[in-house]
Nucleic acid binder design. Structure first.
Length: 313
DNA sequence: AGCATTTGACCCAT
DNA sequence: ATGGGTCAAATGCT
């Protein structure tokens, strides 16, 4: 029973990823479309619309999927630092040896701003306890091992490994293994569903209805989970694929408009809540001075269990 | 005092 | 023999 549930959710994630990828590929294909063929344009638009509806359906149906599946996340059911797990021992070794083989494993690449020495503390909203660190052969940086804080008193077997990338020190490879069975999982999931419900009346139709709800905008010294995007220096606004339904305690956007041409939202001003609670209003015309033609948009890993109240800037 | 982190040692798969 | 994952005592922090 439990195995079926895990596999079912995993298949949902895999299918969701495929839908996201298909949509992006179709959009890329559109840029190569022969402009003299309006029929082809219509077909592609219909294909994109169909994929949007399919993705929107998955989010409305409460699938346990990453909802801001943009570019930073890699999910691979077979991917694991070692396909065979190490050597769990002690009194719960039997539990491990059977469970670990069917435990879903996925890896995220978490990009952090320069100088942010937070050792890949991705804001997945779970409490982790570090239990080990190892120097890995051929890697410049050690790998840290974390387990769920509630492993002992709630028997939660979720673990994660964090390792700074050798190629790009600003990137952490975070490998999650196992699903949380602790109380914080159900608590965060219920809060996330509540948040989704509260936004339904204000959200736009289609794919972006639930996308980007956790999107934050950060300055250069921002912390985890940020991804650099270039803002258009020739425009008075910059764009990113997200919804305007933002958590008010993170970033408030104004003058947001939707472009049906490329599926992007444009905004000309927004508020950023900085460390310490100060709120700063940024206008599009300020981009050059404030961000030196780049802004850090947090393509927030929309962990299905994540509570927006826990986000920090 | 209680909890989290560090780190050397141990275990097991390859 | 080696490398990766985990344990657990020592240490640090609040």
């Amino acid at each position: 029973m439990e195995i079926n549930n895990i596999n079912g959710e995993w298949e949902q994630k895999a299918l969701f990823n495929e839908l996201v990828q298909a949509r992006e590929l179709v959009k890329k294909l559109r840029t190569h479309l022969d402009k003299s063929s309006p029929a082809g344009e219509v077909i592609l638009e219909n294909a994109i619309a169909s994929l949007d509806r399919a993705l929107s359906t998955t989010t409305r149906s409460g699938w346990d999927v990453p909802q801001s599946q943009l570019t930073t996340r890699i999910i691979n059911a077979s991917e694991s630092p070692r396909s065979k797990n190490g050597s769990p021992r002690s009194d719960d070794s039997d539990l491990h040896s059977t469970d670990m083989k069917i435990q879903p494993t996925w890896t995220e690449k978490v990009s952090v701003g320069s100088g942010a020495g937070i050792e890949g503390s991705s804001n997945d909203c779970y409490s982790w306890r570090k239990y080990g660190q190892k120097d890995i052969l051929g890697a410049k940086h050690p790998r840290s091992y974390y387990r769920c804080t509630y492993r002992n008193n709630q028997g939660c077997l979720a673990t994660r490994q964090v390792q700074r990338s050798s190629e790009d020190p600003s990137v952490f490879n975070v490998t999650y293994r196992g699903k949380h069975s602790c109380l914080q999982a159900s608590h965060l999931q219920s809060k996330q569903k509540q948040h989704r419900y509260q936004n339904q009346d204000h959200s736009e139709e289609g794919l972006f209805e639930n996308f980007g709800k956790g999107l934050r905008i950060k300055t250069e010294d921002g912390l985890a989970n940020s991804q650099k995007l270039s803002s258009s220096s020739s425009s008075q606004s910059f764009s990113f694929p997200c919804s305007s339904s933002m958590p008010a305690d993170c970033v408030k956007m104004e003058n947001c408009s939707f472009s049906p041409l490329d599926g992007n939202y444009f905004l000309s001003s927004y508020h950023v809540q900085l460390n310490g609670g100060d709120t700063k209003t940024i206008h599009a015309s300020d981009h050059q001075s404030d961000f030196d033609d780049t802004v850090l948009l947090d393509l927030v890993e929309f962990n299905p269990y994540c509570s927006f109240e826990n986000f920090q800037l």
